[in-house]
Structures are given as structure tokens and as C-alpha cells.
């Protein structure tokens, strides 16, 4: 690895195209994954997230474009990458007759310096799971698959929908593990369609739809320009004088009687305008609140509000 750019990119995806027959699954997709960070591929079902992960794992070749993982080719250099890359598949990838601890012990023997199996199993609540994989609960299956992805002490893990089917406690345990992986220097790439998961875990979010990147950045960057100020006051106030005072692009509406909402514009300017308008018109604002729209709002604006399953 050379210093500068390549040393900070764990994965680079450059203009990748994948077609399934006549259907274009990945449409000139480019993004990069910073080493040591958590990157979330966020998108609705069918956005191409799993396909993209499969290409990064070297499982699938793109029809065109290039993917580099640790500056290596994921297909041609698979032998060098396999010990370094942990994978959690959406469909598990575990023998249906396997029990949790024997499966983990088995995989651990493939690696030179595996994590201690008992500690990892305990941490993910697998120690007392006696069922075979086919009889495990959804959460148990997911925890075992997550454990399998990290058992070999990888420096890069791909997690495809890690918290799908998890109960809240399981999800917290998984999130806690992912956060520690990041702190300990492991690069994490995960796919999710859960906004709260991306918001909570990801340093960098790549929002995908129809095989394209529709937006990417930190959660802070993605929600920038989506400031919202809300307050309560007497219903039916004349907003025209306020709108005149507001910065350009900001718009004010009464969402429900007595509930006012101003979107857009720098927050400080908006709050200043609201203050002046209130004092000039004798309005007493209650619950004046400012913030940003959630990632969910941004996501839904970008990917459309229709549900795709």
C-alpha cells in the first residue's frame, strides 16, 4: 500500500455497472470507504446494496468498472484478502444442522489469531443457545452470523443487513460490537434500510437507489440545508410579515392550528427573524425548537416515498 490516498481508503468503487439480464442492478456506481470508519450503504430494497457488497467481497464480478479492496482486486487477489475480510451474509451461510459454539470453533480454526470463541459467544449471547441453526430464532441466527464475520480478527468486515430480524436487545448488542470494532480500528461496511441504524453507527452514509448513489456524506452533511424551526402560538396568525423577514428559500407554514414550521435557511437567521416578528406582532412563541430533519426525511425525499419491497 502506498501512503496518501490509498492508505486511507479500504474500498474504492469506481464506475461499476452490473446487469441482471436486461435489468441494470448497479448503474455507474462510485464511492469509497475510509479505513477505520463505519460506512453504511443505505437504500430501499432492490437498490443494489447486496449486489454491491457481493462485488466488494469478490463473489461477483462487475460488468464494467473497477473495485479495489485494500488496493487489491477482490477476485484476482482473493487469496490475500480472504483472511482479512469478514463477511456476514443476509441468508446466514451457516449449516442448518450446526450449533452455535461448534460452528464458531470450526471457523476459528481457519485463522492464525482468532478471537477467543467463548468470550465472543458470551458477548453476543450465544453461550446458552443450544438449538441447531435451523431452529434458532431470527436474532440468534443474526448474532451467530455476526460472530462468524469477526471471529478471524479481520481488518475489514462486510455486514449485509446486520440487524434484520433482530429484537431490540440483540440489536443493541450488535451495535455495541460494531461500535467497538470501529474504535479498535476495524473498517466496517454495512447495508441497511434502517435510518436509525445508519444514523447511530455510520461515520459515512452512501444513500443508494436504483443502483446509483443519490447522496453521500456524514449524517451531519446529509442533513445540512434541512434545518427546521418549529414553535407553537395562537392559531391563524398572519405569516406574511414573517415570510418577508425570513432569509431566501426559507418557507413558513402552519402545519396544524397553532403549530408553525419553518424549513430551510440558516437556523440563526431564521430564529432571528422569528424573534423580530414575534416582538413586532406581540406573538408569544411556545416550544420554540430548532433542529435538522432526520436522515429519514432526507432519505425519503431522495428515494421517493413509495414503499418498495
Amino acid at each position: 500500500m502506498t501512503p496518501s490516498q490509498t492508505s486511507t481508503a479500504a474500498v474504492t468503487v469506481d464506475d461499476v455497472v452490473v446487469d441482471y439480464g436486461t435489468q441494470r442492478a448497479i448503474d455507474h456506481l462510485s464511492f469509497s470507504v475510509r479505513a477505520g470508519a463505519v460506512t453504511a450503504l443505505l437504500g430501499p430494497n432492490g437498490a443494489g446494496k447486496t449486489t454491491m457488497i457481493e462485488i466488494c467481497e469478490g463473489y461477483r464480478r462487475p460488468d464494467s468498472g473497477a473495485v479495489r479492496v485494500w488496493d487489491l482486486n477482490p477476485v484476482a487477489d482473493a487469496k490475500a484478502l480472504r483472511p482479512r475480510v469478514g463477511v456476514m451474509l443476509q441468508d446466514g451461510g451457516i449449516y442448518s444442522s450446526a450449533r452455535a459454539l461448534p460452528m464458531l470453533r470450526h471457523l476459528a480454526r481457519f485463522y492464525a489469531h482468532p478471537l477467543p470463541v467463548d468470550e465472543l459467544a458470551e458477548r453476543l449471547g450465544l453461550t446458552s443457545v443450544r438449538a441447531t441453526y435451523r431452529r434458532m430464532s431470527g436474532g440468534e441466527k443474526q448474532r451467530l452470523a455476526l460472530a462468524c464475520a469477526v471471529i478471524g480478527r479481520p481488518d475489514l468486515v462486510f455486514l449485509d443487513e446486520p440487524s434484520a430480524g433482530m429484537d431490540p436487545q440483540t440489536r443493541l448488542a450488535a451495535w455495541d460490537l460494531i461500535e467497538q470494532l470501529r474504535v479498535d480500528g476495524v473498517t466496517v461496511v454495512l447495508t441497511t434500510h434502517l435510518m436509525d441504524e445508519a444514523e447511530r453507527l455510520a461515520d459515512h452514509v452512501v444513500i443508494m437507489d436504483h443502483g446509483r448513489v443519490v447522496a453521500s456524506g456524514t449524517v451531519f452533511e446529509l442533513t445540512e440545508g434541512h434545518e427546521v424551526v418549529t414553535f407553537r402560538a395562537d392559531p391563524g396568525l398572519d405569516l406574511l410579515p414573517l415570510i418577508v423577514m425570513l432569509p431566501e428559500l426559507a418557507r413558513a407554514i402552519e402545519t396544524t392550528p397553532g403549530q408553525y414550521r419553518i424549513e430551510g435557511g440558516p437556523e440563526a437567521d431564521v430564529i432571528g427573524a422569528v424573534g423580530r416578528w414575534c416582538s413586532e406582532h406581540g406573538v408569544l412563541p411556545l416550544n420554540l425548537d430548532n433542529g435538522r430533519r432526520s436522515l429519514e426525511d432526507v432519505f425519503l425525499d431522495l428515494t421517493g416515498r413509495d414503499l418498495r419491497t
Partner: peptide, 16 residues
């Protein structure tokens, strides 16, 4: 301690 300690999950890749 163990894998809960700082660095407990630090990468140390390698095949047997």
C-alpha cells in the same frame, strides 16, 4: 477485559 477491553477486537488477520 478480554474482548471487551479497548483493542480487544483489534485486527490481527491471518490464515491458519
Amino acid at each position: 477485559q478480554g474482548i471487551h477491553a479497548a483493542g480487544g477486537l483489534a485486527p490481527r488477520p491471518g490464515a491458519a
